Simulated scan of single mutants.
Amino acid sequence: MGKSKRNSPKPGGNRAQRLAERRAALEQAAQAVTRPFEGLAAECDLVALQEFVPSATATLKLVAGAGAERPVVLGTVLPGAVAALVRAGDEPTGYVGAQVQYRGADPSADLAASILWTQSAEPGDSLSDPAAVAGGPRLTEVIDPGADLDITVHQDFDWWVPAGVEPDPQVAATIEQARQAIMPSARLAVGPDAIGAPWWVDAGEKAHLRWVRPESEDALMLALARVHAAGGLGLGEGSRFAGSFRTHGVLVPVFDLDRERHADEWIKPAMEFGVRLAEALASDAPLSSDERRSRDGLRSRQVTLR
């Protein structure tokens, strides 16, 4: 008979090491801040910039006396996915990245640490890992919490290089490679009173509208169920409600769209949907049987982004 393999070493490394890594991952997940950008007027756009907007920038409005005097620009992603860098010039400017190579348990604290690092770093320096200190400043203490972001959406990464500067061949090749992978995107201007952040993107085979919402998940799901039961969960012809996903403590409804239509053509339908949703959010009537079925169906189409 062959020798039993029950006690033979298994591939994949030391078991104790694997268990330690698993415990560390669970501890980090337990420490993660559920809603890192809560309390900021720009919360929904910050979530979008961190999770799915390809290329965009916004100059941050810093809090006076927070130790931040040098101008700081938030970019979706910086060269090498670094956390921050300081660009040389007559007036050195700090850049911080939303989509980074290393992300801690609290993205708000990470961004705050990156912003403060830009104030003392030398022009030309870059920061790979912000290494935010537990209990240290968060974004609400460094930028104006009541200010919206004035976002510039780019369809390339030319903003990585200062205007008038000719990049060296390696940098130019990196920018071109990134440009070829970019998906055309737009922040829909759906009015000054609109809630949340609606972002359109052309993903290739179809386009999508991802609308980051600030309401609690339960309240938003009830409202979506009411709208769905009434036949209004859509943006008209050429659109389909695809589902929703959770990220950074908020819910993001997603619509599939006809990509042959320009982003601006979806502004009016999105505004009309926003009105229907606001009316549903304001209702406190018990759910009807149709609305309960709609709620259960919508919940089954949710996913969570980690």
Rank of each mutant, 00 (worst) to 15 (best):
G2D: 12
G2A: 14
N7Q: 12
P9A: 02
K10N: 09
K10W: 04
P11Y: 07
G13I: 14
R15H: 08
R18I: 09
A20K: 15
A24L: 12
A25L: 11
A25G: 04
Q28G: 04
A29W: 00
A29C: 02
A30R: 15
A32M: 11
G39N: 11
L40I: 15
A41K: 11
V47C: 13
Q50D: 08
F52A: 06
S55Y: 02
A58G: 11
K61P: 03
A66C: 15
G67W: 11
A68E: 06
E69Y: 02
T76R: 12
T76D: 13
P79W: 02
A81Q: 10
A81M: 11
V82N: 08
L85D: 13
V86D: 05
V86C: 04
E91F: 07
P92S: 07
G94A: 06
V96I: 13
V96K: 00
G97T: 01
G97K: 02
G97F: 01
A98H: 01
V100Q: 15
G104P: 08
S108V: 07
D110K: 05
A113D: 13
S120W: 14
A121N: 09
E122A: 15
G124R: 07
D125K: 08
S126V: 04
A132Y: 09
G135W: 05
G135S: 06
P137M: 08
P137E: 04
P145L: 12
V153H: 09
H154D: 10
W159I: 01
V161M: 12
V161Y: 03
P167W: 05
D168F: 10
Q170T: 14
T174H: 06
Q180F: 03
I182F: 01
S185M: 09
A186N: 08
R187H: 12
R187P: 02
L188W: 08
A189N: 12
A189Y: 00
V190M: 05
G191H: 09
A194I: 06
A194P: 03
W199N: 05
V201I: 04
D202I: 01
A203E: 13
H208R: 15
L209W: 04
R213A: 08
S216A: 10
E217A: 11
A219I: 02
A223F: 01
R226D: 08
H228S: 15
A230K: 10
G231H: 07
L233T: 11
L233K: 12
L235M: 09
L235E: 06
E237M: 04
G238E: 05
G238I: 10
R240E: 15
A242M: 07
R246N: 14
R246I: 00
P253Q: 11
V254T: 14
D258T: 02
D258S: 07
D258Y: 00
E260L: 06
E265Y: 03
E265H: 12
K268F: 02
A270Q: 11
M271K: 15
E272P: 00
G274P: 02
L277H: 03
E279F: 08
E279M: 09
A282H: 13
A282Y: 09
D284A: 10
S288N: 07
S289R: 11
G297T: 01
R299T: 11
R299K: 15
L305P: 00
